[in-house]
């Protein structure tokens, strides 16, 4: 549905985005993840026909974003970062205005407003001035606008920034619901956010694509130093050597905890089954065997740290 090929955007001599390529299949929810200033908004603005790219190609629904801009704009619903709205208008007036711009006739437009207002829980707020609404409601008015023409593709730039935890949870479940009928691309600088809503993740940093895939694929890519935690009793001094002897294991550290021994095993694949069998054969008692979680988080934090170190070095 969305195809991006070697996309580059220069601001003067500074490359905001350089040579990014990725694809989004129809019906996917894709999270566009990166630290602040990674080029997320720039990429999104190119896809939504706000900025032209310096070089490279981007297509949405088969239409080129530069050559066939109007066709792209018709099938895309876009929620810009920070949700710019006209404070002097009421949501109903605003949505009617947006519907007219989208070429909806009056009856269709009213029906569409009822539909999106219900979907985004703003039915009670339709006749209050937008300027008087809370940040959460403004966000929903923006989302209602993006959904008004029932677009095939929804592009949301930081849809949960500035919302309180309840609103974040509601927005996430709304986005998941929307993905049943729309292809969704959302950006965020928070990993758990993306992990919670998206089937696929595209990570970019400093304008470059770092990784792309499902959360599991990404974990597999970085599993080279995945950690498994084992807690055993009765092994004595054999434990370290026995664990290191398992295939795929690259390092073991042990530490006594009372009668028990806590071992942390670094391995390429998933060594849990082998460890279980080993303990069974040797007759060791086993009270914990788990993979250390949040490896994706570690990975992402590492990327962000690298980026900020580089920035400091420059």
């Amino acid at each position: 549905m969305i195809e991006v090929q070697d996309l580059t955007k220069l601001y003067g001599r500074v490359a905001a985005v350089s040579g990014i390529s990725f694809d989004v299949a129809e019906g996917d929810i894709v999270g566009f993840l990166g630290p602040n200033g990674a080029g997320k908004t720039t990429t999104i603005r190119i896809l939504t026909c706000y900025h032209p790219a310096t070089s490279g190609e981007a297509r949405i629904g088969g239409f080129d974003v530069f050559q066939q801009s109007m066709e792209v704009r018709r099938i895309v619903g876009y929620l810009p970062e920070l949700t710019p709205l006209y404070p002097e208008m009421r949501p109903r007036e605003y949505l009617r205005f947006r519907g007219k711009l989208r070429g909806l006739n009056r009856a269709d437009c009213n029906a569409a407003i009822d539909r999106v207002a219900e979907r985004c829980w703003i039915t009670d707020m339709l006749d209050r001035p937008i300027g008087a609404l809370s940040k959460g409601y403004k966000q929903r008015v923006g989302l209602a606008d993006a959904l008004l023409h029932n677009p095939r593709v929804l592009i949301l730039d930081e849809p949960t920034v500035g919302l309180d935890p309840t609103q974040i949870r509601e927005t996430r479940s709304l986005i998941r619901e929307l993905a049943q009928d729309h292809t969704v691309m959302l950006s965020s600088h928070i990993l758990p956010e993306v992990e919670a809503t998206c089937q696929r993740i595209v990570i970019i940093n400093k304008g470059h694509l770092v990784a792309a895939g499902t959360p599991d694929e990404l974990r597999a890519q970085i599993a080279g130093d995945a950690e498994t935690i084992v807690e055993l009793k009765g092994a004595g001094g054999d434990l370290q050597a026995a664990l290191e002897g398992l295939p795929g294991v690259s390092g073991v550290t042990t530490r006594p905890v009372g009668d028990w021994t806590l071992a942390s095993v670094r391995a390429g694949g998933d060594p849990r089954e082998q460890i279980f069998r080993l303990a069974g054969e040797r007759g060791w008692a086993l009270r914990e065997l788990r993979r250390a979680g949040a490896s994706l988080e570690d990975y992402f934090v590492k990327i962000v740290a690298q980026a900020s170190n580089q920035a400091r070095a420059e």
Partner: peptide, 14 residues
């Protein structure tokens, strides 16, 4: 100033 230009320039109008 308000950023609403972005919503206009990404809507289907020239």
């Amino acid at each position: 100033r308000s950023g609403t230009i972005e919503t206009l320039m990404t809507a289907p109008l020239s």
